[in-house]
Write a protein that binds this DNA or RNA. Sequence first.
DNA 1: GATCTCCGTTCAGATTTCGAACTCAGGTTC
DNA 2: GAACCTGAGTTCGAAATCTGAACGGAGATC
Lengths: 156, 156
Amino acid sequence: MKWDELAQEPCSVARSLAVIGDRWTLMILRDAFLGLRRFEAFQARLGISRSIVTERLNLLVAEGVLERRPYQDRPVRHEYRLTAKGLDLHPVIMAIVDWGDRHYAGEAGPPMLRRHKGCGCDFHAVQVCSECGEPVTARDVEARPGPGAATVRSFT
Amino acid sequence: MKWDELAQEPCSVARSLAVIGDRWTLMILRDAFLGLRRFEAFQARLGISRSIVTERLNLLVAEGVLERRPYQDRPVRHEYRLTAKGLDLHPVIMAIVDWGDRHYAGEAGPPMLRRHKGCGCDFHAVQVCSECGEPVTARDVEARPGPGAATVRSFT
DNA sequence: GATCTCCGTTCAGATTTCGAACTCAGGTTC
DNA sequence: GAACCTGAGTTCGAAATCTGAACGGAGATC
């Protein structure tokens, strides 16, 4: 399988990764969630080539994850903001952060703390079942084909 | 920043992505969570070059995400199983699946359903605060530097 | 002993990705 | 108005990565 065939796979992981599975894309999204919005800011923070920033931002805009909007005229300057679809990626980032915190924080503790505004506590994310509200682990889940599994292409 | 400097960043996203942020690694982990364990199985399902499968499996083993253990002698054959650290990645995969289900499932519906064994329902994952149990969205979170933020390397 | 399976390794060549320098348009400084 | 700055890209050669295909080897099967 080639990388650009991923999007056609009947698998939500593959389809998502076709958009965000790139080396730098998730790093850009991390910064977007931390509030960065400008081309220069992304480029400077990541210290990667401008062409890569350009390409990734364009892809994320094309996919509707970021929105490119002018924030001034003369000269026109644009900023990149998370759309609703982009904000839906928050659980992905949080899950990645939590794994990193747990396994790579070292002696010093996690490099960032996150406070839940609702209760004021520093927290980490817990995944629960949308139906019963109980925490879910790998062993509690049983996967099976769903309605979109066998997308048969018709020839007529 | 180069790709292999990611692991040194004082950021849990960067550190995690240094391990799992690769193009194919998350696809391999997806299959591992679906129960695949053998080299041939990963290679056949992904349809990618054997050398890449080798390399990724070795990296995941080196990082302690997968464990390589013999499942027969004469000839020795190994299988790759998720370790506890690997199982901790389940929330990441779930979050990615949920995003894909929500934004790329199309008319036919999601390609896979997941049932929570606890309550027997098909479900999706909801992230809640570890402290108060309320659902968490991007807007509810406030990030600030933590104890591991300024890892100053001593020269003595 | 020929062939098959499983699990890799190797290598040349194609493809992609990257970094550094360049462009460009407008604004600011003096 | 000349020199310089800033934000946002583009270009292009070099470097990394991926592919496909062949090879190896250790036992099993026929």
